[in-house]
Design a protein around this nucleic acid. Structure first.
Length: 357
DNA sequence: GCCGAACACCGTCACTGTCG
DNA sequence: CGACAGTGACGGTGTTCGGC
């Protein structure tokens, strides 16, 4: 087997796994079952005294699509039709409460009503054709189940991360230097610089503003450990603060004694001239004239988009992992719950059953 | 030690939903 | 309607582990 084929197989399995539905069954047990194009057996009980009837249920693709409501039509021997509607629960965890079972007796005149229901189902499917994000799913889960941590809308800092390690804080502003580097300024005052040429971690450098708390009048000094200190670099920051210059030894003030000679210094000053807030280095499209500038602008935009998407993919994967962990913990909880219920049932059986001896 | 399988992680692309 | 975020899919790379 070729490497690609194998990996494809693995990834396909993973994909299938993510499409699986963890169902809480009637007996409380939790199983994982493939939701799509899979026939299943469902036990339906039509009355208190009736014998449970095993009905062959074919999902028949009614629940296909991400997060769409699966409507399973079960034809009972008595002529009744049971619509098992798995309500558009975004979570892949289907708790028994969210299944609504509609028992209708189908006659010839009910066909129109049935078709209406199908149309309604189609509409609902169209509305909910896309699966919500993991954040939404997890938040809904956590609202249902206590003890499940919510994903914050914007995490101030990664939990469990040592405070002295520069983290990938959520940037609030991204700027580009005159040399093509990207500078992301996070809310905590952390500045990250990434080189477009290098990738990921290598190109990322974290900065700390020395006066990120309460800036004194004058300059904000940004320490920047460049991997290749070459010449002057400058970038702009918003909030009527501007600039930067790093002639290495030129503007290293006395309080930057920690700065070595190899470390260029950036200085952010209040603008002497009236500069609009949020000014970015990149020239506005209107000021671009020649094709080379346009190409550079396109390249910059692409780099920026790729960088953002990179970060988004990281965040998405993190959420996904958290989501899977949440599912696993939920399965564990439900298994314990199931075990307890079985034990309780056995106890009640022992109590209620007539003594034979 | 070598090799292949299995797995984890990452970057990128494409697509869709949301929002201003 | 365009910009953007979120996410599935795909391919690439690195690591671990068991069999030889």
């Amino acid at each position: 087997m070729s490497k690609c084929g194998r990996k494809k197989c693995i990834k396909t399995n993973l994909r299938q796994m993510t499409m699986e539905t963890i169902e809480s069954q009637q007996d409380g047990s939790v199983t994982a079952s493939v939701a799509e194009n899979e026939s299943a057996h469902m036990q339906t009980q039509t009355g208190p005294n009736s014998i449970p009837t095993l009905a062959q249920v074919s999902v028949a693709g009614s629940g296909t699509g991400r997060g769409s409501p699966a409507v399973t039509v079960v034809q009972l021997p008595s002529g009744q039709t049971v619509h098992v509607i798995q309500t558009p629960q975004p979570s892949v965890i289907q708790s028994p409460q969210i299944q609504s079972v509609q028992v209708t007796t189908i006659t010839e005149t009910d066909e129109s009503a049935e078709s209406e229901g199908i149309i309604d189902c189609h509409k609902r499917r169209e509305i909910l054709s896309r699966r919500p994000s993991y954040r939404k799913i997890l938040n809904e889960l956590s609202s249902d189940v206590s003890g499940v941590p919510k994903i914050e809308e914007e995490k101030s800092e990664e939990e469990g991360t040592p405070p002295n390690i520069a983290t990938m804080a959520v940037p609030t502003s991204i700027y580009q230097t005159s040399t093509g580097q990207y500078i992301a300024i996070a809310q905590g005052g952390t500045i990250q610089i990434s080189n477009p040429g290098s990738d990921g971690v290598q190109g990322l450098q974290a900065l700390t503003m020395t006066n990120s708390g309460a800036p004194p009048p004058g300059a904000t000094i940004v320490q920047y450990a460049a991997q290749s200190a070459d010449g002057t670099q400058q970038f702009f920051v918003p909030g009527s603060q501007v600039v930067v210059q790093d002639e290495e030894t030129e503007l290293a003030p006395s309080h930057m004694a920690a700065t070595t000679g190899d470390m260029p210094a950036y200085q952010i000053r209040a603008p002497t001239t009236a500069l609009p807030q949020g000014v970015v280095m990149a020239a506005s499209p209107g000021s671009l004239h020649n094709p080379q500038q346009l190409a550079e602008e396109a390249t910059r935009k692409r780099e920026l988009r790729l960088m953002k998407n990179r970060e988004a993919a990281k965040e998405c994967r993190r959420r996904k992992k958290e989501y899977v962990k949440c599912l696993e913990s939920r399965v564990a909880v439900l298994e314990v719950q199931n075990k307890k219920l079985i034990e309780e049932l056995e106890t009640l059986k022992d109590i209620c059953s007539p003594k034979t001896d």
